[in-house]
Amino acid sequence: MNPTRPDAPQGTPVGRRIVLGMLGLGAAGVAAAPLLQRGVEALARQDPTGLTDALPAGGAFRYYSVTASVPPKNARTYRLRVDGLVDRPSTYTLADLRTEPQTRLVRDVQCVTGWRVPETPFEGVRLSRLLDAAGVRPEARAVRFTCFDGAYSESLTLEQARRDDVLVALRMQDEPVSHEHGGPVRLYVAPMYFYKSAKWLSGITVTDAVRPGYWEERGYDVDAWVGRSNGREDAPTV
């Protein structure tokens, strides 16, 4: 008989060691992640080819949509409706919004899933300005946002909605907001996690109470302050 019978039951349990080794490496990776992450980001910054954008955590935006597809809207077809508990319901075209005074903010964007894009400029009309123009009634307590993707919604308390750093944004990264990023008009709520900054904004409805939005019905916090909600401790963006 062959002295090294290939399927002899004895032999070194290499397979078991590899499985245990992988578990050990995984745990070590979790522990060493902050260090490794900084290394990857430093590498990505020096990369002229842009190849590192395709790798995990390349420091860029990631595209999230909750529906199958979103019909594009342009200056001709876009409308923003302001209604609910207001004295003067109104509808804005893109041109109307452009004639309003524009505010530019440069803050970090922090996603609740962990990615952060530093120093991203947003420019648009302060939400408080549109609310004042519509004449908010005394019994109003909150604002609900709806989107022309047909599914997404968001909400803020009236107090949050009137902050200076909440915009109806027409520009992002100093360009018109692209369709992929929720253009032509999206909400921008600077101090909160980015899911509050609803894309493809089409409706602003003043209500008597906060109604949880799309992700909030799926477990996210309604008051989504960066670093003080969703069980996260990220550095605040504002």
Partner: peptide, 9 residues
């Protein structure tokens, strides 16, 4: 955050 890093890579 560490788990996300390991999961991604």
């Amino acid at each position: 955050t560490g788990a996300t890093f390991v999961h991604d890579w």
